[in-house]
Design a protein around this nucleic acid. Structure first.
Lengths: 135, 135
DNA sequence: AGAAATTTGTCCGTATGTATC
DNA sequence: AGATACATACGGACAAATTTC
């Protein structure tokens, strides 16, 4: 039988389905996934394809596999902190900065500031100082 | 013929060999790698194993593959900036920080500062400000 | 413009090795 | 020791993108 693959490949579709089950709690964090053989049966596919799907999930950090035991849904659900607005400007090196970067006082410096928010509220500030036109 | 895999698997050995050739300039950056079929012949292995090797190199960012074209040695050799000394301290929120983080003036703030060096010389400063004892 | 050759992408089926329970 | 499950490897087939003629 031929094996056409229109749109997304089967291994990707299977990976997405498994991922969906983890996110929806059908498979709880830390729980063992169905064995490759079971997934092979359910999705009517070959073991290679199932393994390919699981491999992609492993790269994404969604699951963890242990040799001889099985594949688990990952415990650590990395939380998205969301996008932040960053802003950059040119400033003049003050005493501290000129000292740290080894430049003269008043040297043009790029300041890049971004506020990290969490739960809609500011959580941390990151500032990067770099000499302009270096590199 | 059986297919034992003592020590490191074949796909890993093949990946390392290709990687070595890239680092040694045998394959210059941006150059096309031998086709999968050629590698299959050279390493006396199956296409699947060659593809597995290339896949690992792709994950490591050592190569880039294009459908119908081939696999190239990566152009971007990420340079290691080395380790930097970072230091942290507790400061009191000044006007700018208290405003950005939405806290009162004088609130204890963790300041984490690190100087990124390049070619033995300071190159940039990163400062992170965060309210103490949050989280 | 079109056909053929090349190359990577996907999928299948099978066999064997290795680790865990 | 046996059962189960993942890891590696092989070979074949067809699809899709690119290049070449």
């Amino acid at each position: 039988m031929p094996t056409p693959h229109y749109g997304q490949p089967r291994y990707r579709a299977i990976a997405d389905e498994i991922k969906r089950r983890i996110e929806n709690g059908v498979i709880s964090p830390g729980a063992l996934l169905p064995a490759e053989s079971a997934l092979t049966t359910e999705f009517r596919t070959s073991r290679g394809t199932v393994r390919h799907a699981i491999a992609t999930l492993r790269e994404e950090g969604a699951v963890v596999t242990e040799h001889g035991r099985g594949t688990y849904a990952a415990m650590t659900n990395s939380k998205d902190l969301g996008t932040t607005n960053a802003r950059g400007r040119i400033i003049s090196a003050d005493a501290a900065i000129s000292n740290l970067l080894g430049v003269d006082l008043g040297t043009p410096i790029v300041e890049h500031e971004s506020v990290i928010e969490r739960d809609e509220k500011p959580w941390a500030i990151v500032r990067v100082y770099k000499v302009e036109a270096t590199d």
